[in-house]
Design a protein around this nucleic acid. Structure first.
Length: 926
RNA sequence: GGGCCUAUAGCUCAGUUGGUUAGAGCGCACGCCUGAUAAGCGUGAGGUCGGUAGUUCAAGCCUACCUAGGCCCA
């Protein structure tokens, strides 16, 4: 007879093959139908809230691996908080205004854009953003991320736009905001000022020129050696077009400068660079006739090389000797450092360049010329007047516009600023940084340094798609009108009609009736045309979201973004919140690194190492992507490669198969009726449950610390090491061959059920789909509709047994030694399967006592047919390295192999009814 | 060029306040099993801790510099 039919072999319809890319959408559908997010919120109702405030991704393009990573980490936080005893709320958001969308719309409209009114174009922008909100929403949902997807926050919603204006108003009325003239990054193509964040550095070829400025003050009065000489200061610059705006020449106070006589004139350059410079000018013969420190030059005057104007010599700390001449051309209207040093010396903020990047009419020789074209003309002019000492093209890192990729210029313009100093914003912000928990802790130093050094925040943009800067100017006297009443009135209109109202109505229709200019009593006004920086938009999300939704609160618990946001959203939110409310809008800030390729290099289209999350989802499923996020330590850069994917898929299979095996052995188990109390369980089951408690404790702690990779490794190693290789492998005999309802088998089933029930909950935040798939098949009466509505398992004291663990530590060590001995016998063809083996152990002392008392357990956990203690082992002899003095002998087991349990036994053949099986099996058959 | 960060076996991660022969899992090699089977089990070989120089009786863990990489800025 076939005894296989008498065994309790595993049975389950839980498929071995995950088929994730096909099965995941089915779960998404189920969750959609049951409104899983609401269901979880209902379960969590009344608990302490945990609020992670979503940083809004930009509503343009499809999600990439970085955005996927970010959303998945957020989802891990939200889900683990909910299962860990909080009411964790997730309102996703989108950043909708800004240049990129406006550009994209311009591109799509083509020439049509010139026929559209401002409002019409804004409507296109709105539609464009809506379209990508929809796209990204479905892509995020596909990742298994739960949240209020049907009610997200959008920075372009009427309410949000109104609050943006109200927040601006607070700062305005508080005196933080001022209008000033400053050099800002200016893109002549896009005709707009750019924020620091909108600038990219790329290699760019520019001419570099050496130019001599004739000295006009009597320098010989200070340096007598130069009496009677024609003296020139030589500068070097890579932006010849800024020379018409030159107002000064900077030198370093401590550097030594040399007066070099050559070609009948004297050139001043840094002493260290004399050889280098003369080489560049092509002068072979020269003589240094004087040397002096830079400070001697301060206050001396040169004449501009081709314009009738003075250029004064000043001292600046940023002068270096790395390139050039050691004398730096200063145009305060065209450079940040130039501007700052210009302020110190009271120089004019001169920038004779219009918004198109063309010289203004007052610029001699070059009026109307585009600045980058003017490089050539300026050089030509300088050649003409004989001041050009040398020139060459060089490639260097130069700022470019993030959108149009064209090189940009620094240009002094009228802009609105939030002052870091006027109302002590910097100081307050720095203090607030100290009150926030930064994870990892170095985040504090990073943002502190940035806030400490940043210039005033330029919040104005000369664009269309955004929230207007709500300021009016009196047509009569030019006075700024931005009173509390006016701002509130406009905010009200925006709340009703969207910010479009600003662009479609005239000033008089935006103002409260009877508004008059405070200084001239005029009643005609014009609107400010600038809009707000989009970083201001997202920077007020704490006000627009946390304070407006009933179940949220201000401040929230956490902001969680990539480490670039120390300068981005964390930063803008901090300044806005500190400026209006005196503290940061968050209690904790968690940052993650960036996704890089298998070599640690950043992903770029040109290198061709970009990985698309859609491809991974289609090929392996979102689950594998989630597992990747969980497995990697996100505090540093996060690598992805095909090998990493392969490893994760294998790990996933192991977890899946372990679960499947347990489910297969629970086909006839009803935990309500069949569970065995802890005290009556078999020793090994109690060992497995003790280990489970350790896993639960470690995993819950890891979730609390946001160390998701610890969650992954802990569970995975438990599955592999403790369960698959030991506990489950060993338990097969008991599960398969014992009587179906025997206590021994029920004990194992109780343990396995408990284990899977815990694992599935611990894994649910990570493996959202698979955990649900397992949960659906768990035998439990009255269970929750979704594993995501359950809580994490608690550590149960009754399962903790330190003495047992101590004993089993030795038992498992012993198993390793026996396995080595059996392996040696296997190599010598004495045994194949471990059940072929008979093991003889020689040991002494306490070890011998332990072995003698547990011979049967040792036989069981080693899956051999016989174990005996003896003084002189026979067969293949191995000496233990772990246990001193212990030796193990392995020989072929005696007796006959039982056809049912495959163990060798002397009892096989004794029964006439069942001649092929052992008496243990005969007992289990009846 | 500056600020912050990272660098441990092929891969992903551990390595407590510096202290014995640097750990795990996977992968790999070899083998077993065929009652978890496009599964399961065992054994084994792989790092001197990015590099250099220091501090120390003692350094993967401290210091300096360098290299590579990342983010941010210039």
């Amino acid at each position: 007879m076939d005894y296989k039919d008498t065994l309790n072999l595993p049975k389950t319809d839980f498929p071995m093959k995950a088929n994730l890319s096909k099965r995941e959408p089915e779960f998404l559908k189920k969750w959609e139908e049951m409104n899983i997010y609401r269901a979880i919120r209902n379960v969590s109702k009344g608990r302490k809230t945990y609020i992670l405030h979503d940083g809004p991704p930009y509503a343009n393009g499809h999600i990439h691996l970085g955005t996927a990573l970010n959303k998945i980490i957020k989802d891990l936080v939200i889900k683990s908080k909910n299962m860990g005893g909080f009411d964790s709320i997730y309102v996703p958001g989108w950043d909708c205004h800004g240049l990129p969308i406006e550009h994209q719309v311009d591109k799509e409209l083509g020439d049509k854009k010139y026929d559209l009114s401002q409002v019409e174009k804004r409507r296109y922008c709105r539609k464009y953003a809506e379209q990508f909100v929809d796209i990204q929403r479905s892509e995020f949902k596909r990742l298994g991320v739960f949240g209020e997807w049907d009610n997200p926050y959008l920075t372009m919603s009427y309410e949000y736009e109104a609050i943006t204006i109200e927040e601006f108003a607070k700062l305005m009325l508080n005196g933080d905001i001022y209008k000033g003239k400053k050099p800002v990054y200016w893109c002549a193509t896009c005709k707009t000022a750019l924020a620091e964040a909108e600038v990219e550095y790329m290699d760019h070829q520019t001419p570099s020129v050496y130019v001599k400025f004739p000295m006009i003050s009597d320098f010989a009065a200070v340096r007598s050696k130069l009496k009677g000489e024609k003296v020139y200061c030589v500068i070097w610059t890579t932006t010849p077009w800024t020379l018409p705006a030159n107002l000064a020449i900077a030198v370093h106070k401590e550097f030594i400068y040399a007066a070099v006589k050559t070609q009948g004139e004297v050139l001043i350059v840094a002493k260290e660079l004399v050889g280098y410079c003369m080489d560049a000018f092509g002068y072979k013969e020269y003589e240094i006739i004087d040397e002096f420190p830079g400070e001697v030059l301060e206050g001396q005057k040169c004449r501009h090389p081709f314009i009738d104007r003075e250029s004064v010599l000043i001292l600046a700390p940023f002068v270096t000797l790395e390139a050039g001449t050691g004398l730096v051309h200063i145009a305060p209207g065209h450079g940040q450092e130039d501007y700052e040093i210009g302020l110190e010396y009271g120089l004019d903020n001169y920038a004779p360049v219009d918004e198109n990047g063309r010289f203004t009419p007052d610029v001699e020789f070059f009026a109307g010329e585009f600045v980058f074209d003017a490089n050539e003309s300026v050089m030509k002019k300088m050649k003409e007047v004989g001041v050009l000492l040398g020139s060459m093209d060089i490639g260097h890192s130069y700022p470019h516009c993030w959108r149009c990729k064209n090189p940009i210029i620094f240009r002094s313009t009228e802009q609105w600023f939030i002052s870091m100093e006027k109302k002590g914003l910097r100081e307050k912000a720095l203090k607030s940084i100290g009150e926030v928990r930064w994870i990892p802790s170095w985040g504090r130093d990073r943002i502190y340094g940035m806030v400490e050094n940043r210039p005033d925040w330029c919040i104005s943009r000369q664009r269309l798609w955004g929230v207007p800067i709500v300021v009016f100017y009196c047509e009569g006297c030019g006075e700024v009108l931005a009173t509390r009443e006016v701002l509130a009135h406009v905010a009200g209109l925006v709340r009703q009609y969207s910010a479009d109202v600003w662009f479609e109505r005239e000033a008089k229709d935006l103002l409260p009736k009877g508004t008059k200019c405070a200084s001239c009593k005029g009643d005609a006004f014009r609107k400010e045309t600038n809009i707000l920086d989009v970083w201001f938009d997202s920077g007020v999300s704490h006000a627009a979201v946390l304070e407006t939704r009933a179940d949220l609160r201000w401040p929230c618990d956490m902001y969680l973004e990539g480490s670039d946001q120390h300068r981005g959203w964390f930063h803008s939110s901090l300044l806005e919140s500190v400026g209006t409310r005196g503290r940061a809008p968050y209690k904790e800030v968690l940052t993650h690194g960036f996704v890089v390729d298998g070599e640690g290099k950043k992903m770029s289209k040109s290198v061709g190492n970009v990985v698309d999350p859609q491809d991974i989802i289609a090929k392996y499923g979102a689950e594998i992507l989630r597992l990747w996020v969980a497995a990697e330590d996100y505090t540093a850069d996060i690598r992805i490669s095909s090998e990493i994917m392969e490893r994760l898929i294998e790990a996933y299979r192991r977890i899946r198969n372990t679960s499947r095996f347990i489910l297969g052995n629970l086909y006839d188990f009803n935990p309500g009726k069949d569970a065995v109390p802890c005290a009556q369980m078999e020793e090994m089951d109690r060992w497995a449950l003790h280990r489970l408690q350790e896993v639960i404790q470690r995993v819950r702690k890891a979730y609390e610390d946001f160390e998701f990779h610890v969650v992954y490794y802990t569970v995975y190693n438990y599955c592999t090491v403790d369960l698959s290789a030991l506990y489950l492998d060993v338990s097969k005999d008991r599960l398969y061959t014992s009587k179906t309802a025997s206590k021994a088998r029920r004990s194992a089933q109780t343990a396995m059920w408990t284990i899977l029930d815990s694992l599935v909950r611990l894994l649910a935040p990570v493996l959202v789909f698979t955990a649900e798939e397992i949960w659906e098949r768990m035998p439990v009466e009255g269970k929750e509709k979704s594993v995501h509505m359950t809580s994490f398992p608690e550590v149960k004291q009754e399962f903790l047994d330190p003495d047992l663990m101590e004993k089993w530590k030795t038992m498992i060590g012993l198993k390793g030694e026996i396995a080595k001995a059996v392996e040696a016998a296997r190599r010598n063809k004495i045994v194949g399967h471990s059940l072929d083996a008979r093991v003889e152990i020689a040991a002494s002392g306490r070890l011998a006592e332990l072995i003698r008392a547990n011979l049967d357990t040792i036989r069981t956990i080693n899956i051999v047919s016989e174990v005996e203690m003896t003084d002189k082992p026979s067969g293949e002899i191995s000496c233990s390295s772990e246990f001193e003095g212990m030796s193990i002998g392995v020989s072929r087991a005696g007796g006959v192999k039982c056809e049912r349990c495959w163990m060798y036994s002397g009892t096989v053949g004794k029964s006439a009814a069942h001649p092929a099986i052992c008496d243990r099996c005969i007992g289990n058959l009846s």
